[in-house]
């Protein structure tokens, strides 16, 4: 009898103990969440309240619920779907092309010094010339269609990933290269087993900047010379005074940027578990 009581007491103590621990854990999680996202929540709450209360001009800065319902309507009615598709296609093709050309070219240029030295001045010149300033030239060369838009985005997105890859390859620890050489590794083996894995963190830094640049140039190109796409929608909504729609388009674009970055960060973590 007494043992049974003791056991029950112990069990209850144990249970409350874990409960307290769980409470502690939840407290910790909530505080952590607030520490990270607190300011963002304050920002959006103030926006919503200030707009609905009329502290700010709701015609210029509409409340969030109206923006979100405009976004929802745009997507469910299918009105925005074409724009979303064409924008994702333009940015996607251009980004993939910039990675597909920038990474291999960067790996080669980083390994072959004379090539890098010969190409560097012209790359610096191209890089420092605003891609948007060159857009008219691309239009003259490639026409007003998709090609010139994709090309201007590709052009701007190429340089971050290319330069980061070159930098990554050049910074590979010479001591590791020498170590591989002492085991008789061929230049190709050294490249595949030492240079490439060592450069991956730098390549990802470049890819993330390239993704951001691609979205930036997408909007600019679509604002200048397009009749479809999210960038066009932002301008078009503003001309037609569909202000909630304008914000909806901006939010969607911001969301893409965050999503692209998130995907690349996850991919990098997966590939570089050793550096975590």
């Amino acid at each position: 009898m007494s043992t049974a009581i003791k056991n029950t007491v112990r069990l209850r103590w144990y249970k409350t103990g874990t409960l307290a621990a769980q409470n502690g854990l939840w407290r910790h999680r909530i505080l952590n969440f607030l520490a990270v996202y607190g300011l963002l929540i304050v920002f959006f709450s103030s926006w919503q309240i200030a707009s609905t209360q009329g502290w700010i001009n709701s015609a210029v800065i509409p409340p969030l619920d109206r923006i979100l319902s405009a976004l929802w309507l745009g997507i469910t009615s299918g009105a925005l779907l074409d724009d979303i598709a064409i924008s994702l296609q333009r940015a996607g093709i251009a980004f993939l092309a910039s990675a597909g050309i920038g990474i291999p070219l960067g790996l080669i240029m980083g390994r072959i010094r004379p090539l890098e030295r010969a190409l560097d001045p012209i790359l610096q010149l191209f890089r420092q010339t605003s891609a948007l300033a060159l857009y008219p030239i691309f239009i003259l060369l490639l026409g007003l269609g998709e090609a010139s838009k994709v090309f201007v985005i590709f052009w701007a997105a190429l340089f971050p990933v290319l330069l980061a890859t070159i930098g990554g390859v050049k910074e590979v620890d010479a001591k590791l290269l020498e170590m591989a050489r002492t085991y008789g590794a061929s230049p190709l083996t050294i490249f595949r087993r030492v240079v490439l894995p060592a450069s991956i963190p730098s390549i990802f830094v470049g890819l993330r900047i390239s993704a951001t640049t691609a979205l930036l140039l997408l909007i600019a190109a679509e604002m200048i010379g397009a009749n479809k796409g999210m960038g066009f929608q932002v301008m078009n909504a503003q001309y037609n005074f569909q202000i909630p729609m304008m914000y909806a388009a901006i939010f969607l674009l911001a969301f893409w940027g965050i999503l692209a970055n998130l995907i690349l960060v996850k991919l990098q973590r997966r590939l570089c578990r050793w550096s975590a």
């Binding site: 170590m179 002492t182 050793w274």
Partner: peptide, 18 residues
Amino acid sequence: LSRERAVIFQEPRLLPWL
């Protein structure tokens, strides 16, 4: 360089990703 000799350096020179 040849295979009958192996070198150990002052630093371990391990590949961090392996």
